[in-house]
Amino acid sequence: MTRFAFAALIYLLMGMMVVLPPVMVLAMALSHGAGAALATFADPDALSAIRLTIIMTVLTVGVNTVFGVMAAWTLSHFRFPGRNLLIVLIELPLSVSPVVGGLVWLLVFGTQGWWGTALERWGHPIMFAPPGILLATIFVTFPYVTRTLMPMLAHNGRTAEEAAITLGASLWQVLWHVTLPGARLALVSGILLTTARAMGEFGAVSVVSGHIPGLTETMPLHIETLYNGYQTVAAFTMAALLVLMAVIVVAVRTFLERGQDRTEKTA
């Protein structure tokens, strides 16, 4: 009986903590009818926020996948001085507040920062512009690919890679055909975590964005702006869209994991 009691408790908690909030978001979005909710997307600022979020997410995922794979591969294959320090550093963004992540970039690239005057002369702004948002998003999502990939690479070991080398594979071929496919479940997991986090990042982006509607507002920032502007329906419609995007990411991940279960057992 305790089994069912525990199960019921978990269901209740999950329902209250995880299921209910998105449902309420959706309910709020539709509180004035679907028409009012859809009208949200007639606003060019909203479309711009959606577009910016997608671009930033795609770029972040691209950059962090490349860097994450490089870092995970290097760290799991080689022993070198400072390796443990590097592992700690890679995890740093997980423990540091995202606001700090944003402020750090301001310190470097803001006009009062180290390279501020040089950048100003160059004429291409980094802070309060999409490049700054990209940097901030990359910073907060940096650890995910590395952290999910490293244990998998360690678990897989090196012999499959060595086998590929003796068969004539180059370093790149080993990585592409053996190492990454062998750890693709972890890689996909890391990429999707990065995607979800990049789409939803608020704190770090908020610091470097400047909150310029239509230009530097991502979806989370635009939701805040809408909410503060008493545009409740629009705010919750955008929020519902963001929730939907996150649900899609999770669903893709689950689907891929199920599809790959077959071949994932070690030979």
Binding site: T159, A163, L167, G168, P181, A267
Partner: peptide, 21 residues
């Protein structure tokens, strides 16, 4: 010469097959 250029067949104790192929 790199291992990849030596053209030597190597069979490992635990097979080292590519599990995903």
């Amino acid at each position: 010469q790199d291992a990849r250029a030596r053209n030597i067949g190597f069979v490992f104790q635990h097979y080292a097959l590519f599990a995903h192929m």
